[in-house]
Each structure stands twice: as C-alpha cells, then as structure tokens.
Lab assay of single mutants.
Amino acid sequence: HMTFVALYDYVASGETDLSFKKGERLQIVNNTEGDWWLAHSLTTGRTGYIPSNYVAPSD
C-alpha cells in the first residue's frame, strides 16, 4: 500500500469518512474512486474515505 501524509486536519462528514489530523500517516487502500480515496490510518487504525487533496505522498 502507498503511504501518504495528511496536509491538513479533516473532520469526517459522514459515517464512511475518516477523520484525521495534519501530519497523520495514512495507507491508501483504494484510490480508484476519483477525489475520495479509501484509506487506513496508521495512527488510529481506523479505515474510511478521505479527500485526496488533503494528503500528499510520504517519502
């Protein structure tokens, strides 16, 4: 899985979304859904959809 880092805080707007904090590391499970990607937080262990423009590839 690709690892990304959150650029901003995001508060989930629905049950399927994943809240995260700036700097949180996320594994992308599925990024074929356009602007919303299914991600797994390496910080909280939770999985949900995130806005793709809130994250950047982590080196």
Rank of each mutant, 00 (worst) to 15 (best):
D9S: 06
P57A: 11
W37C: 04
D17M: 12
D9C: 04
W36K: 08
G45Y: 05
M2H: 13
V29C: 14
V11M: 10
H1Y: 13
P57L: 12
S41E: 02
V11T: 12
F20R: 00
S41Q: 05
G45L: 07
N30G: 15
S13R: 14
R46Y: 08
G34Q: 12
S52V: 07
N53H: 13
W36L: 07
Y8C: 12
E15K: 12
I50K: 00
R25A: 09
T16C: 15
S13D: 08
P57W: 08
N53K: 12
L7S: 03
S41K: 02
R46L: 14
L26M: 10
A39Y: 01
H40L: 14
P57T: 08
I50P: 00
T43I: 12
A56H: 08
G34W: 09
A6F: 01
S13L: 13
E15N: 11
I28G: 03
I28L: 07
L26E: 00
Q27G: 05
H40E: 10
E33G: 13
W37I: 08
E24I: 00
R46D: 08
G14W: 08
G34H: 12
Y49P: 01
N31W: 14
V55Y: 04
G23A: 04
V11L: 07
N30I: 09
N30D: 15
E33V: 11
T3Q: 10
A12H: 04
H40P: 00
Y54N: 04
A12G: 11
I28R: 06
Q27C: 15
N31E: 11
E33Y: 12
D35V: 10
A6R: 00
S52P: 08
L38A: 03
T47A: 06
S52L: 04
F4P: 01
I50Y: 00
A56S: 10
V5P: 02
Y49Q: 05
G48M: 02
K21Q: 12
L26D: 00
S52K: 14
H1R: 09
D59N: 13
I50Q: 00
G45F: 06
E15W: 08
I28A: 08
D59L: 13
G34K: 15
E24Q: 03
Y49L: 13
G48K: 01
L18E: 02
F20T: 02
T43Y: 08
N30Q: 10
I28T: 03
F4M: 12
N53I: 10
A12K: 05
T32L: 12
P57G: 07
K21P: 01
E15L: 13
H1N: 14
F20M: 07
L7Q: 06
D35E: 12
T43R: 10
D35C: 10
S58T: 13
M2K: 12
S58Q: 13
E33M: 14
V11Q: 12
M2T: 13
G23I: 00
H40I: 15
V5C: 06
L42V: 08
F20Q: 00
H1D: 13
L38R: 03
V55N: 03
S58V: 15
E24K: 00
D17S: 07
L42G: 04
V5L: 07
Y54P: 02
D59C: 13
K21D: 06
Y49H: 06
G45P: 01
A6Y: 00
A39N: 00
G45A: 05
T43V: 13
G48L: 02
Y54C: 07
E33L: 14
N53A: 14
I28S: 04
A6N: 01
K22R: 10
E24H: 04
N30E: 11
T43E: 13
R25G: 04
I28K: 05
P57Q: 10
Y10T: 01
T43G: 06
H40N: 07
G48Q: 01
Y10K: 03
R25L: 15
Y49I: 07
F4Q: 04
T47L: 08
T32D: 13
G45I: 01
Y10C: 04
A12Y: 02
H1P: 12
G23V: 00
D17H: 13
V11I: 13
V29W: 13
I50G: 00
K21W: 05
K21V: 11
V11G: 05
V29M: 15
D9P: 04
L18I: 12
H1S: 13
S58F: 15
W36S: 05
V5K: 05
T16Y: 15
L38K: 04
D9Y: 03
E33S: 14
T32A: 12
H1E: 13
M2G: 11
G45T: 03
A6H: 00
G48V: 02
A39S: 03
N53P: 06
D17K: 11
T47W: 12
G45D: 06
S58A: 14
L18A: 05
G34F: 09
A12V: 04
D17C: 10
D35P: 11
G23W: 05
E33W: 10
S52M: 09
A56F: 09
H40R: 15
N31P: 12
V29F: 11
V5F: 07
W37Q: 03
T47R: 08
L7T: 04
A6C: 08
T43H: 11
T16G: 14
T44S: 12
W37E: 01
F4L: 08
T43K: 11
Q27L: 15
N53M: 10
K22M: 08
T47Y: 09
Y10F: 08
F20I: 09
Q27N: 09
L38C: 09
T44I: 02
D59Q: 11
T16N: 14
L7K: 05
S52G: 07
T44Y: 02
E33N: 15
S13I: 14
K22W: 03
A56T: 13
L42T: 07
A12L: 03
N31S: 13
S41I: 03
R25W: 14
A56M: 12
E24C: 03
Y8D: 07
S52H: 08
P51E: 01
M2A: 12
E24F: 01
D17A: 07
L18K: 01
V5I: 14
V55T: 04
H1F: 13
V29G: 05
N31C: 14
T43M: 11
S52Q: 07
N53R: 12
T47H: 07
A12P: 05
V29P: 05
T3D: 10
F20K: 00
A12R: 05
Q27H: 15
S19I: 05
D17T: 07
Y8T: 06
A12E: 04
Y54V: 06
